[in-house]
């Protein structure tokens, strides 16, 4: 008996290919990226207008507002992560491909982060100026947002995978993700506040980095398992 043993295209090739495909799709439909980013910018600029221009108040609330807006805008973009693949049947094709599903999920998560997390990190200093944040801590703000958005994209992939078969699953997705995302929000916002107050803040950054590493190593497997369940 001859057992057909296909020579597989490498895992990295699969991961890069799906990330490239999703980036190409995002490029052809820029609205999907711009909406959450626009939401982030709107919340951050409208808050000082409504809360009043008192300097102390702005400095105190700045890190919190920026971080909450970042979290909410990421939640907005999560729903679409697997939705279009589910609707046009390409998710089925991914499920029966030669590539291990966690690698493909990771590829999709990387593309999601590059189109939602990274732009958010890049425009954050611009919005931080609204809150009279000192330019010295822009670096720390960006670093925490960078690590935090990686965590959120990875955690979000689990929630998006679980709710992919449900129509209008956004509310449920938020409920599922928020408990896991809470440490990220607290660590991120408090680290920036501490840095702004001139206090030691390095622990927070290490903790965020640790959280990101844990999410990176576990989330793709959890999301792959969730995809198999919700696609039954």
């Amino acid at each position: 008996m001859i057992v057909y043993s296909p020579e597989r295209p490498g895992i990295i090739i699969g991961l890069v290919a799906i990330a490239r495909r999703d980036l190409l799709l995002a490029w052809k439909r820029p609205g999907d990226i711009l909406n959450p980013l626009f939401f982030f910018a709107m919340v951050c600029t409208l808050f000082p207008l409504a809360a009043g221009p008192s300097s102390e108040q702005l400095v105190a609330s700045g890190p919190g507002v920026l971080w909450v807006a970042a979290l909410l805008s990421t939640l907005l973009s999560l729903n679409s992560m697997f939705m279009s693949d589910y609707e046009d049947g390409s998710l089925d094709q991914l499920l029966v491909s030669l590539q291990p599903l966690p690698a493909l999920v990771l590829g999709k998560t990387v593309a999601h982060w590059l189109t939602s997390g990274l732009p958010l990190v890049l425009i954050s200093p611009l919005l931080a100026m609204t809150y009279k944040m000192s330019t010295d801590i822009f670096g720390i703000l960006m670093l925490t947002l960078l690590l935090g958005s990686i965590c959120l994209s990875l955690l979000g992939s689990i929630g998006a995978a679980l709710t992919v078969g449900l129509h209008r699953g956004t509310a449920l997705l938020s409920l599922l993700i928020l408990p896991l995302a809470m440490p990220v929000l607290l660590l991120g916002a408090n680290t920036v506040s501490l840095a702004a107050g001139g206090e030691p803040y390095v622990t927070g950054i290490w903790a965020l980095a640790g959280y990101a590493v844990a999410a990176l190593s576990l989330a793709p497997y959890a999301a792959a398992a969730a995809l198999r369940i919700s696609n039954e």
């Binding site: 597989r8 290919a17 495909r21 190409l24 799709l25 491909s97 030669l98």
Partner: peptide, 20 residues
């Protein structure tokens, strides 16, 4: 299972990474 926004060539280029 093909993407409506992508061309035929782009779609199948991606498929090539999924199997032999």
């Amino acid at each position: 299972g093909l993407k409506g926004d992508l061309t035929l060539t782009e779609n199948l280029y991606f498929e090539g990474a999924l199997r032999q």
